[in-house]
């Protein structure tokens, strides 16, 4: 039974689904839409590479690439999410020029004088 037309049809279908996700990446109103679109396109790429391998009859060559994608695909998404996480948080107030002199050396922490030890005599009297 020749399954090749089935696989080709599947590959074309996935390619068109990828086009839908690409629309979300291009148009997506927020950055989070774009991140999701990219992640889904990555997953579809993984499947498509296997399908091209099956159509070609040399899956063994392509499995390594798909494994690499499966392992690495989410790193970009995590990095984008981290970037967004920092972006979404309120920025700390800008330091005034007077706070840090440009010629100041390494930061020196001004530690308050340690609290005086309790007077042993007074302890006894209590």
């Amino acid at each position: 039974m020749n399954l090749e037309p089935f696989f080709i049809a599947m590959a074309v279908a996935i390619l068109f689904l990828m086009l839908c996700n690409l629309y979300r990446v291009v148009a997506g109103p927020t950055v989070i839409d774009r991140m999701l679109g990219m992640n889904v396109i990555g997953t579809k790429t993984t499947v498509l590479i296997v399908l091209i391998g099956i159509i070609d009859g040399r899956v063994a060559l392509f499995i390594d690439i798909t494994l690499a994608y499966a392992l690495l695909n989410f790193i970009t998404t995590i990095a984008a999410a981290r970037f967004y996480q920092r972006l979404a948080q309120p920025a700390p107030p800008e330091p005034r020029e007077s706070m840090v002199a440009p010629s100041a050396g390494p930061e020196v922490k001004v530690v308050d004088a340690p609290p005086a030890a309790p007077d042993p005599v007074r302890k006894e009297t209590r």
Partner: peptide, 9 residues
């Protein structure tokens, strides 16, 4: 960030 995502795709 959006541009970086587009280059990723």
């Amino acid at each position: 960030l959006s541009s970086a995502i587009a280059t990723g795709v």
